[in-house]
């Protein structure tokens, strides 16, 4: 992620029109908007290739198994709610409940990745199996990378929560991480619809 949070280095950064303390969050939101365009590009590429294809599925493949990914989807979507709960408790100052739900969110993210790995290992087609295989692994792989990034960011935030006085000045890292996680979630829902729900 290109957004290493940079604390305002000089005291003079805090004057002027409005508060300048929120740059990090502003920058991060701008970055997320930009990042979503890459997914948009991949989604539209997928749709165009699929609509133009004469035979979309490679020989010997009947389509994707959807039950396991559906469970995965439920887990990932619920993890957004546990994350909201965690933030709620942080707001109330119940730091241990925050850590608990935060950790639960991380665990659910990790479960999602595990499920994804299991699914990949059971597939009969590969990355180079035509545009079907190519787009499938590209979309799920690129999304998986984002899930992994999200889990790592959450780990970092969890570690920082043990720094004394960390939240005194308002913690933007947690907000940014949770925005990122919701973003990854929404992307997955679109992806699930495109890959698993959309039948020929």
């Amino acid at each position: 992620m290109s957004s290493t949070p940079v604390p305002p280095s000089s005291p003079s950064a805090a004057h002027g029109e409005g508060q300048h303390a929120n740059h990090n969050l502003t920058g991060f939101i701008i970055f997320l908007c930009s990042e979503s365009v890459i997914f948009l590009a991949f989604f539209s590429g997928y749709a165009i290739l699929r609509l133009a294809a004469l035979d979309w599925l490679p020989a010997g493949v009947d389509g994707l198994e959807w039950r396991m990914p559906l469970i995965n989807t439920v887990v990932l979507v619920s993890s957004s709610f546990t994350m909201v709960l965690a933030e709620h408790f942080k707001g109330k100052g119940k730091i241990w409940l925050f850590r608990g739900f935060w950790l639960l969110t991380m665990a659910m993210g990790a479960y999602f990745l595990y499920g994804q790995a299991v699914e990949w290992s059971g597939l009969t087609f590969g990355f180079t199996s035509g545009t079907f295989g190519g787009t499938f692994y590209l979309l799920t792989g690129f999304h998986g990378l984002h899930v992994l990034t999200g889990i790592l960011l959450m780990g970092l935030m969890l570690a920082k929560s043990f720094v004394p006085g960390n939240y005194d000045g308002g913690e933007q890292g947690v907000i940014a991480t949770s925005l990122f996680w919701h973003f990854v979630d929404v992307i997955w829902i679109i992806l699930f619809v495109l890959l698993y729900v959309w039948r020929a």
């Binding site: 290739l49 294809a53 004469l54 035979d55 990355f127 180079t128 035509g130 545009t131 190519g134 787009t135």
Partner: peptide, 18 residues
């Protein structure tokens, strides 16, 4: 890059790409 180095066929007509 994937087409060039890994052998996918997003843009390769012979693999169904466009």
């Amino acid at each position: 890059l994937l087409d060039l180095s890994v052998g996918t066929s997003f843009y390769r007509p012979e693999g169904g790409g466009d």
